[in-house]
Amino acid sequence: MSEWARSHRWEVVLGGVLVITIVANAILSPYYLGLDNIVNLFWLSIEKIIVAVIMAFVIINGEIDLSVASVMGFSAAVLATLHESTGLPFVAAILIALAAGALAGLIQGLVVVKLQLPSLVVTLAGLIGFRGAARVLLEDRSVGEFPEWFDRLGQRALLGPFPLAVIVFGVALAIAWFVLDRTAFGRKVYVIGSSAEVSRYSGVDVDGVKIRLFVMSGLTAGFAGVLFAARLGSVRGSLAEFFELDIITMVLLGGVSIFGGSGTMLGVALAIFTVLNIRNGLGLANVDGIIQTGTVGLLLIGSVLVPNLASHIRSRLPFGGPPLSTADT
């Protein structure tokens, strides 16, 4: 146990913060522990956190995808446009929308890999471009009147109190953990993030893994966009605008190194839970949105700073332990 705790120091810190948050929320708000609230807590940010899970893969792999929020908007816009102007079965429209998301990821992945451009720049262009594509499709219109079953999937509980999206998130998290921690693909993601050249020299298909990740990122963003459309019941060109920084914040808070090669799905999950609980607790206490954002910002800095300072102080003490390693330096 202590061995595990030592190698997962980040997760331990986050777990502590999460527990404190939960206890504080439970004491401060009588509404917090209700089942409805707990479901809502996930449901209200479900699209962001689903994308955060795949973003963790991309960042561990040493890349970044800034275009996710725009791809969410783009896929949803494709879905809405097909629904509005063709007689296509709605399920087919959904599939095409998902394919559009995957295609967006594929294009960016190919540019990154084949032209060897930094993904930061490529996906920054994607961020502008795919948002633009969504606006091209929808202009100033809001498209709704989706089939009732679709709206219901987004808005009503499906299994017990859980809406589809929350179930999807749970499954996605489990699959992500499995893939990252247990499979050869996950291993490659880490090793490439740690050193792409070593991987290349070891016969790992670096380009293939990267392209697959970008496609997965696009596909997941597309999926999240479709889920969002179902939850909102209608789609506009601005859907999910500005989500990217929130998503990246959650991943980095989860202890994933921006330089790639390290981070765990457990850490990302804990970071997601922590952020959601803090926002929910503050929301129930009628604290303004901007202060919620600021609190998350403070937490992001504090969660790296405090262990750093603690280890600094400890290293000054006689018989102190070895310095804490931070998530990324």
Binding site: N40, L44, S238, G283, V287, I290
Partner: peptide, 21 residues
């Protein structure tokens, strides 16, 4: 209470839901 930025078009959903809770 409300979203900080009017650009955040769907941010109100969270506040509405919290109010119900």
């Amino acid at each position: 209470v409300g979203p900080a930025d009017c650009g955040d078009a769907t941010g109100q959903i969270e506040f509405m839901t919290n109010a119900v809770t």
